[in-house]
Amino acid sequence: MIKTVKASLSEKILFIFLICLGIFAFTSFFLLKNKCLSVKEVNLEKVNFPDPENIAIMNVECGNVVIELYPEISPNSVERFKTLINKGLYDGSAFYKVIDNTLVQAGDLEYGKKEYLDYSKIGSGKSKLGTLKSELNDDFEFTEGSVGFARSTEFNTEDSEFFITLKEIPIYQGEYTPLGKVIYGLDILERIKTGNKAIYVLRPDFINSFKMLNAN
């Protein structure tokens, strides 16, 4: 004959505690894995942009990043940027250089696209539109969310690559061509995959689409 043993109160409490812990661990795993959690999404239809001609919308994994462009500061560079956006050339471009909490960089149209990613050449790709003269501005401050045209170590080598600062980088003032500023979605950019200790990102995040507001 089998004698049933009743669980004591403390055993019951321990059992319930273990079940709760299991549920918490399980849900946390899925919640934490979702890097886009708690990202604020801007409703573009509800925002009244004073200068819609110069608003660009970059869609990435976690949502839309809204950028205001400054043609009055860097006319030629902004024009080039708009040309590349309107041609859809940034769509599928990799954020191949991401420095944690510092900056994200994308726009290598030759070797940094989703369909063709060449790690040995990334950062050296060309747009085939030729390089531009740097449009430096000693008064433009590279505060967080500033968008600038990337270049090689030489000036006047801007082409298609751009970067967005995630923090203020005062030393960039007067060093890089300003393109504009992020007005919504900086927290979205902060979720872009970093390279951990490496400057270049293995299996990077991509730009889903990049459009001018008026083109939507």
């Binding site: 420095i99 510092t102 790690y119 040995s120 960039y172 060093e175 400057i199």
Partner: peptide
């Protein structure tokens, strides 16, 4: 092979904007 090449060519971050400049 690509992965290996990438690892060999990896540049460690000097998260120092002055150095980069």
């Amino acid at each position: 092979l690509i992965l290996l090449l990438f690892c060999l060519n990896i540049t460690y971050v000097n998260a120092d904007e002055i150095y980069n400049l």
